[in-house]
Amino acid sequence: MKILQYAFTGLLGGLILALLASRSIWLEMRVNTGILLPLTIACAVASRSLFRRDLPFRAVCGLEALLIFLLLAFYRFDPRALLLMPASLFKEGFFLHAVSIRTVNGILSLLVISGNGLFIPGPAAVRHWHRRQNAFEPEADRPDPFL
């Protein structure tokens, strides 16, 4: 589960990097800027196995906010551009040449919804959180275990 969280964060980071790289015509004409997507996902997954730290949801929210800000800054409020650019970078990055932009947008929407869903705490995590909260309760409020 944690590894999927890292992969989703890598996807968001990759989209941001690919979007920035594609703004350079020199770079865009020489390399497949979309390739930054799978590369960033791979780096994010590798970093999970190295550091084994949990990702805070606020980091993902920050990346999502940055992505939306960049898209609006580059393409204003043109809905055609907003629907096309992230999808075409994803398509190029994963070499999905035969897949239509509409299908890629469907895949991206599913990934974003399920990716955010990965950060919703499950029942076990909620129980653990309650246990930790109780551990910090003042001693006077705790029931005496010897009674």
């Binding site: 865009e28 004409m29 497949n32 393409y75 055609r80 096309l84 650019m85 040449h97």
Partner: peptide, 24 residues
């Protein structure tokens, strides 16, 4: 049509899809 280049500048009008610049 490659819609990406409605919004990005490019120096290629038409490139064979099988070429290394096929998506440019």
């Amino acid at each position: 049509v490659n819609g990406k280049y409605f919004y990005q500048p490019t120096r290629h009008f038409a490139v064979s899809a099988t070429g290394s610049n096929g998506d440019k």
